[in-house]
């Protein structure tokens, strides 16, 4: 494991913790897209199918359990918790997220490294993760008042993707046989989706004003 991978995993972990902190302590999920959270739950469920059959390291297993547990509990909070769900911006969060899943599944059936159930599911999770942030970005754009925690959540997610790209560059030069087009291209697409957000995030930080995305 290199420093970029670790930094990527940690920013990913912090993003989830920030979100859970917001939901659990403030009892609010205002500004958070349930559509994006449901997509992440599906992403982790389909990617970690091998969690108990393919052991890599204790670190990997624990992190997988954290991401699975946190993503499903966030969805539970937003759908079922009697206080939290009242703060959900249902009318603003209208992205038709199920329509993202079908193209990702078809693409995974066509473009994969091996045509097996596990491999297709794993590829599907990569494609879906690449676009899963879209409902959240649309919601951010509609929300006039982006609170700090929501802004930090999306920033940390974007940072996680950026670190993963550095990790792949590092691994490409330090390891043999490390060419994974599917992972790289879907990862790059995913990171580029954050470019616009990053621009406005740094602008607001530099000028010390509240984050607001242009409509």
């Amino acid at each position: 494991m290199n420093i970029f991978r670790l930094a990527g995993d940690m920013t990913h972990l912090f993003s989830v913790l920030v979100l859970l902190l917001k939901i659990h302590t403030i009892k609010s999920c205002a500004g958070i897209s349930l559509k994006t959270q449901e997509l992440y739950a599906i992403v982790f469920a389909t990617r970690y199918l091998d969690i108990f059959t393919n052991y890599i390291s204790l670190y990997n297993t624990i992190m997988k359990l954290i991401f699975l547990g946190s993503s499903f509990s966030i969805v539970w909070y937003m759908r079922r918790h009697k206080i939290v769900r009242r703060s959900y911006d249902k009318d603003q969060d209208t992205f038709r997220h199920y329509f993202l899943m079908l193209p990702c599944l078809i693409l995974a059936l066509i473009i994969n490294e091996k045509f097996t159930f596990r491999e297709v599911m794993w590829t599907f999770s990569l494609y879906l993760e690449a676009v899963a942030i879209l409902p959240q970005l649309v919601l951010l754009q509609r929300t006039r008042n982006i609170d700090n925690l929501t802004g930090q959540y999306v920033f940390l997610l974007g940072a996680y993707r950026a670190f993963y790209i550095l990790n792949w560059i590092y691994r490409y030069f330090t390891e043999e046989h490390f060419v994974h087009w599917i992972t790289w291209i879907s990862g790059l697409v995913q990171t580029l989706l954050y470019a616009d957000f990053f621009y406005y995030y740094f602008q607001s930080w530099k000028n010390n004003v509240k984050l607001e995305l242009p409509a």
Binding site: D9, N54, S57, N60, M63, E113, T183
Partner: peptide, 10 residues
């Protein structure tokens, strides 16, 4: 193997 390398990430 190649597969192992891809799957060791999260």
């Amino acid at each position: 193997t190649k597969d192992q390398v891809a799957k060791d990430e999260l």
